[in-house]
């Protein structure tokens, strides 16, 4: 255990936890917007996968990581709009249609990868951005302030989302549409417009999460997200539909994963326990979810399509 408490290992573990949390945080923040307005998008993982492939392919072709991120955003917006069309305009059963979007993303990202790329080929990654002054702080600087820009953006989106949801007119409309769409409608709020906006924001952030994952890893492979989109949805419940709670969940999942990996590397967890230890992040997160979620109520109109006058 003593080898864990060394500077290099502790710094690496915390930095690893943060990196692992970022795609989950981006995707679950986006999903929070949708769910607060009453729309459950189970297709997050599919959108992440297409965002990941789009971002990866753009970087592979141009070498420009920012263009890759932009492509991820564009794909996310497109698929967010498509999801809104299915869920809001066509009023499809959200659970089923979300699985459809996921399968579309899973299959299409692989098909495009096979056709356009073939063998996994490394690409450029996001450059590291050292925050002047802060990155030089011993230990803390390396843990928190020597990451790629997408890490700071993801965590910056937490207070931004808190402000938008809790302190703006748009946020008030989101909450009212998610709690009582009939009342919101009677006050002149367009339920459809608000839900289109939130689901599109969710799609966009899922696309960013996917692109960020691929560009941060510098590689793409079939099913790259490995179901992270579904974990992101669970984290929205874990976080009780609040950005700060969602961030706590993403960090918990990331840190437990990083800790388990480090413990296994150093032999603190015996090799024969590896498979059991690999389940720890999911088990701990689910247990925390059970404890936390019972104390909060989900948006009353979640998963319920809105029909005026129905």
């Amino acid at each position: 255990m003593s080898q864990f408490f060394t500077e290099a290992v502790l710094i690496a573990t915390v930095a690893s936890g943060i990196r692992l949390a970022v795609p989950l945080l981006l995707a679950s923040l986006g999903e929070t917007y949708g769910q607060r307005s009453g729309v459950l998008n189970l297709g997050v993982d599919g959108i992440m996968l297409l965002g990941a492939f789009g971002g990866y392919y753009a970087v592979l072709e141009t070498g420009n990581v920012w263009l890759g991120l932009l492509v991820g955003i564009g794909i996310g917006i497109l698929l967010g709009l498509a999801t809104a069309l299915i869920s809001v305009t066509l009023r499809a059963e959200q659970g089923i249609s979300g699985i459809g979007v996921y399968l579309f993303g899973l299959g299409m990202s692989d098909l495009l990868f096979q056709r356009l790329v073939g063998t996994p080929t490394p690409i450029s990654k996001f450059p590291k951005l050292d925050i002047p002054g802060l990155s030089d702080i011993p230990w803390l600087g390396e843990m928190l302030f020597q990451h790629s820009i997408i890490v700071y953006v993801a965590f910056g989106l937490v207070p931004f989302s808190m402000f938008v949801i809790n302190r703006t007119v748009f946020g008030m409309k989101i909450r009212s549409v998610g709690e009582n769409p009939e009342a919101a409608d009677s006050l002149g709020v367009s339920v459809a417009k608000v839900r289109y906006a939130t689901v599109t924001i969710g799609g966009m952030l899922a696309g960013v999460a996917g692109a960020a994952l691929a560009i941060d890893l510098g590689i793409f492979q079939q099913n790259l997200t490995n179901a992270q989109g579904f974990i992101a949805i669970a984290l929205v419940y874990f976080g009780a539909w609040r950005p700060l709670g969602v961030m706590a969940g993403a960090l918990l999942y990331g840190f437990v994963n990083a800790l388990v990996l480090q413990f296994k590397t150093l032999g603190i967890i015996p090799q024969s326990w590896s498979d059991i230890a690999a389940m720890a992040p999911a088990v701990i997160t689910i247990l925390a979810l059970v404890v936390v979620a019972r104390r909060f109520r989900q948006p009353a109109a979640l998963t319920k399509p809105f029909t005026r006058g129905a």
């Binding site: 590689i219 490995n226 590397t265 150093l266 590896s274 498979d275």
Partner: peptide
């Protein structure tokens, strides 16, 4: 370090980081 997954690229990446830090 067995990550527990044949397909989790992100976890394999972080496992490699853990190995280098060790």
């Amino acid at each position: 370090n067995y990550t527990g997954s044949f397909s989790d690229v992100a976890l394999a990446s972080e496992a490699a980081q853990a190995q280098i830090s060790a």
